[in-house]
């Protein structure tokens, strides 16, 4: 029971991070129907931005308040990663509208390879670890020598995720941008005829997706304290799995999928085998795509003849 509770906490933490990344996949898929393969690497780039920003703040500027440093890092990482998201869409995806259907996916694979190697070339291939940022936690339960521990990091990750998702939900449901975004999802041509700037809406979607990935990147760095240039791929695929599992195109689905994937990964590692945890994630991806491609909260697609 105690082990279970501990794993539940760990799983929800990890799931929050996956959920944040998954939103980027699901929104982009919803609006232009492409799998943004490079999204995982955007997440990795944001981790590096956060890492360097954190080092500058603590080592050079001597900011000792962790809370302040984290806030600045978060804002910086979101802004700069959003710029990456915008630039990628502008350069690699926008010219491909109207091209054949696999073109954006191939282009996205190109961007993914570019990003990870760009970071490798500029930052080196080694793992980068940060000094511990936020220590300590609350002991929730103690029995038979086992302590169920809720660290401050985990509290922070779950709180930040919850707050941001609420804000984001408001943005999509209640603002003109959100309306434009949902209109473009339904019918891009019609939306354009009604005076919606479709290009701008798509750009904003990428910017928002990248900003949420940046939050995930900062939290990931905070949680694990280490990052490398190749860290975008596996979390990226897992977050995509989450998006598909939740029903691609559905925002609550992405968060739900993220939590489920996080929980499965953690419980699988705890109770079965840690070596095969990624196999589990990839298998879920394959199984979901084959047997329930519309996911938990998605809509089924009817083939047009």
């Amino acid at each position: 029971m105690d082990v279970f509770l501990q794993q539940l906490i760990n799983g929800l933490t990890l799931g929050s991070i996956y959920g944040l990344i998954a939103i980027g996949y699901t929104m982009v898929f919803g609006i232009i129907g492409m799998v943004n393969f490079a999204h995982g690497d955007v997440f990795m780039v944001s981790s590096f931005i956060a890492l360097i920003a954190f080092l500058i703040l603590t080592a050079w500027l001597g900011i000792s308040s962790v809370a302040l440093a984290l806030l600045i890092v978060l804002v910086l990482a979101m802004a700069l990663t959003a710029l990456w998201g915008w630039a990628i869409e502008r350069v690699a995806y926008r010219p491909l509208r109207g091209s054949f259907r696999l073109a954006p996916l191939i282009s996205a694979i190109g961007v993914s390879i570019f990003l990870s190697n760009f970071v490798q070339v500029t930052q080196g291939a080694r793992n980068k670890s940060t000094p511990p940022m936020l220590e300590g936690g609350i002991a929730l339960m103690q029995s038979e020598g086992y302590t169920v521990f809720l660290s401050y990091k985990q509290v922070l990750i779950m709180t930040v995720t919850a707050v941001l998702l609420t804000g984001f939900w408001y943005l999509v449901q209640r603002t003109p941008f959100g309306r434009a975004q949902r209109a473009c999802e339904q019918d891009r041509k019609m939306a354009a005829l009604l005076g919606i700037d479709v290009d701008r809406t798509i750009s904003l979607t990428f910017v928002l997706g990248a900003a949420l990935a940046a939050v995930a990147g900062v939290l990931y760095l905070l949680y694990y304290g280490v990052v490398s240039f190749s860290d975008g791929f596996v979390p990226g695929v897992k977050a995509f799995t989450a998006a598909v599992l939740g029903g691609i195109g559905s925002l609550p689905g992405a968060v739900l999928g993220g939590l489920i994937i996080g929980l499965i990964e953690v419980f699988w590692s705890a109770y079965f085998s840690i070596e095969y945890k990624d196999v589990a994630a990839f298998s879920i991806l394959a199984i979901v795509l084959i047997f329930m491609p519309s996911g938990i909260l998605g809509r089924a697609e009817v083939e047009k003849v």
Binding site: R101, L102, L105, V279, L289
Partner: peptide, 28 residues
């Protein structure tokens, strides 16, 4: 066999997943 009825981009992702599964099995 199970994946070839999927649409193009899903097929691509599933083949990627299979590729990774085989590699991870080889490692473990």
């Amino acid at each position: 066999f199970p994946v070839l009825r999927l649409r193009g981009d899903y097929l691509a992702i599933v083949t990627l997943a299979f590729g990774e599964i085989i590699r991870l099995v080889l490692i473990n």
